[in-house]
Amino acid sequence: MGAQVHGVQKFDKEKRQAIQFSEKAMEEIKEIISHYPDGKQKSAVIPVLHIAQAENNGWLSAEVMDKVAELLKIKSIEVFEVASFYSMFNLKPVGKCVLEVCRTSSCWLCGAEDVVRHIEKKLGIKDGETTKDGMFTLKTVECLGSCGTAPMLQCGASYHENLTIEKVDALIDKYRSEGRSRFYTDKDYQNTL
């Protein structure tokens, strides 16, 4: 995946020692590992990385990936290989809400570029940047399977569809007041279309 280019992350032993996932996250990880036959726990790496990312403010540090390796009894490099391949894993810090605007064909046909331009102007950031207060990151992404309800954006686990400029404004206000996006790992998570 050509999307993410990243430098070598520094590994901080003290930070690594301090990493602890919440009880809820550990429960969920245990449940996920139980879905695979004995000895095939490596299969759990992608779902576990999603949980780890949610536990770590939306991104994966070298220390967090090392923790995942320990939990799954695999090598750190096996985790990094996976994390660096898939576009949903952030290897750099991101804002509390990542606004992912779909830009592929159907969304483009229905005005995705207007949505991107509006957000850029409103928040004073460009595609890929984070606002100074650390609240929002804007990211353009490839087809999210919402072509019939274009244009759309995803924030955390929520799909926001049939966007208009008013809807985008209302969304930004809503997220600002809530403080962060909702992750699918939130037990009370409900899609808020």
């Binding site: 483009w108 005005g111 207007d114 509006h118 244009p151 966007l163 400029i165």
Partner: peptide, 11 residues
């Protein structure tokens, strides 16, 4: 038209 203005966009 490289992009379409949303009907209510007053840029």
């Amino acid at each position: 038209h490289h992009y379409y203005r949303l009907h209510n966009l007053a840029e």
